[in-house]
Amino acid sequence: MSFLDSFDISASGMSAQRIRLDIAAENIANVDTTRTENGGPYIRKDVVLASYGKKTTFANALRAARTGSSVISTGKRGVRVAGITDDTRETKRVYNPTHPDADVNGYVEMPNVDVTKETVDAMSATRSYEANVTALNAIKMMTQKAMDIGK
């Protein structure tokens, strides 16, 4: 694995975490949306992440490092957004007979969004993004130090 692969891995992680943060913000913004284009309450969205690139075991990586071969460094690696799915949990029913979307019994179907969970997801995405930035900066510093050695 070359040091440039490390840049790709960190960059893909930052991109994936940005999308996670965007989806958490969208979910929070729609916490009170009772009517969508599809005719029902907003349904919470979730991000599915997946790795991509050549997969290798630790034993193969160790063997490649010992022999000096570049078996591992073929193709880009990192993380990608495999999809954005709808949450399957039921929506909440709240009694509010004055609401324009209330049914004949006075209940309104509310989105299945939990603001606390979305806040935790947003914090997790932010911390993961920061970890990728830290790794990227460490790689950059190592590269600069290596170039200084060559002077």
Rank of each mutant, 00 (worst) to 15 (best):
D46Y: 03
K45G: 02
T56I: 11
G75S: 11
L49Q: 03
R80G: 00
A61M: 08
T56W: 05
A64W: 01
A82K: 10
A65S: 12
R77D: 05
V81N: 02
R63W: 01
R77S: 14
G83T: 15
A59R: 03
V81C: 06
K45V: 03
A59I: 10
N60Y: 02
N60M: 07
A50T: 10
A65H: 10
A50I: 06
T67I: 06
G75E: 10
G75L: 07
L49R: 02
I84V: 15
G83E: 13
V81T: 09
G53S: 07
T67A: 11
I84A: 02
F58C: 01
L62A: 12
A64F: 02
V79M: 11
I72T: 14
S73H: 04
A61F: 03
T57H: 09
A50P: 01
V47C: 05
T74W: 01
A82R: 08
G53W: 02
S70I: 04
A65Y: 03
A59Y: 00
S69V: 06
G78T: 01
R77G: 07
N60F: 02
G83Y: 13
Y52K: 04
T56G: 03
A50Y: 08
L49P: 00
T67G: 07
F58S: 06
I72A: 12
A59W: 00
G83M: 14
T74P: 00
T56E: 07
I84L: 05
